[in-house]
Computed example of a mutant assay.
Amino acid sequence: MGLADDRDLVPLGSGFDIVKRGYDRAQVEDHLERLDSDLRLLAADRDAAVSQTNDLARQLEAARSEIAELRGQVERLSLPPTTLEGLSERLQRMLRLAQDEANEIKARAEAEGGHIRAKAEADAGVLRTRYEKLIAELDQRRTDMEAEHRGVLEKARAEADRIVGEARAEATRLDEESLQRRTTVEEDFEIAMAARRVESMKTLAEQEASSKGEAERRLREAAEEAARVRAQIAQEQASSNAEAQRLVREATEEANRRRHDSISEATARVQEATDEANRRVREATEEANRRVTQASQKVDALRQLRNRLSQQLHAVSSALHDVTPLLDPLEEERPQPPQSSTPAPTAPSST
């Protein structure tokens, strides 16, 4: 709090250097920055004072709580633990002394507590008064600084408007001068262009005449070159036709020769193929006849084998026919008929 009490008020007016277009901008910005820093310092002092006031209030409440606790202890100690009846004289005297001492301590504690309470309340009042005074000073400083800030901003805004107006007037004047200069330059340009146009037309006429002569010369040279080229082309065409006819004759002769060779070769190959085919037909016929002969021989052999088997079967059948009577059983091997065991009937007796 001592730092806040000893600080001087922020100066509300500062002189700025006058320059060509108003106040010096750097000085104005520095002054505004100083004002902002002073405001931040005042806010920090205010916060510190509020914090200190809160600490003192908490200490006062703690002292009040401690006084109340001590008062309760004194009251508990001042109460007699028991009645004086039935106690000895010595104990009664000691109890009275203790009660007197307790009353004295209680009175002294109450007096000291009242003194502490009064002192704490006085200190709290002083702190509250200082805090309110400091808050009022801070509010006044803030109001003054805001007013000064607004004044500086208004001056700067007015100066800026004036500078903008002068700049616009200067721009208008420069535009008019530029328009006049442009008109003059355009007139000079038109005059120069007219002179150059006349000179250019003259130069173009001369160039056109020389160009026509050069063109006629080049046309003559081109016609001569074309005639020479046509003659050369005709000569080359005649030689090319002769060469082409020669090549056609040679190609025709070569084609006829190759066709004759091809026909001869084809005839020879056809004859060879015919001979080979006849040979293969003869061989196939001989092979077929041979196989047919072999098949006929096999058929004859199979037929003979069948006849022999038939004869053998016939002989076996005759043999079986002759052997069949021999297989019949003999008389003694034949089964006997069964004999009857019933007795013969007797003749009736006569009476």
Rank of each mutant, 00 (worst) to 15 (best):
M1H: 05
G2L: 14
L3R: 01
R7M: 08
L12I: 12
F16A: 03
D17R: 04
G22R: 00
Y23F: 14
R25Q: 09
R25I: 12
E29T: 11
D30R: 09
R34T: 03
D36S: 15
D38L: 13
D38I: 11
R40G: 15
L42E: 11
T53G: 13
D55Y: 11
A57N: 03
Q59K: 07
S65G: 15
E66M: 10
Q73S: 14
Q73L: 13
Q73G: 05
V74I: 13
E75C: 03
R76A: 08
L79C: 13
P80C: 04
P81D: 14
T82R: 15
T83A: 12
E85I: 06
Q92V: 10
D100H: 13
A107K: 11
A109D: 05
A111F: 07
G114N: 14
K119H: 11
A120G: 08
T129F: 08
I135D: 10
A136N: 09
L138C: 14
D139T: 05
R142P: 01
M145E: 09
E146G: 10
A147R: 14
A147K: 09
G151A: 10
L153T: 05
A156H: 09
A156E: 05
R157E: 12
A158P: 02
R162L: 06
R168V: 05
R168Y: 05
A169W: 03
A171F: 06
D175T: 12
Q180L: 07
R181S: 04
R182A: 10
R182K: 04
T183N: 11
T184W: 02
T184M: 11
E186F: 08
E187Y: 07
E187M: 04
A194F: 00
R196L: 04
K202L: 12
L204S: 06
L204T: 01
A209L: 12
E214M: 01
A215K: 04
E221T: 02
A226G: 01
R230S: 07
R230V: 10
I233H: 14
Q235C: 12
Q235N: 02
Q237I: 07
L247R: 03
R249S: 15
E250T: 00
E253I: 04
D261P: 01
S264N: 15
A266P: 02
T267F: 10
V270W: 13
Q271L: 03
D275I: 09
D275H: 07
V281W: 14
R282F: 00
E287A: 03
R291W: 00
Q294L: 05
A295Q: 02
K298N: 09
L305C: 15
N307W: 13
L309K: 05
Q311R: 09
H314Q: 11
S317N: 10
D322R: 14
L326W: 02
P329W: 00
P329L: 04
E333T: 04
Q339H: 08
S341I: 06
P348G: 05
S349F: 04
S350M: 01
S350H: 11
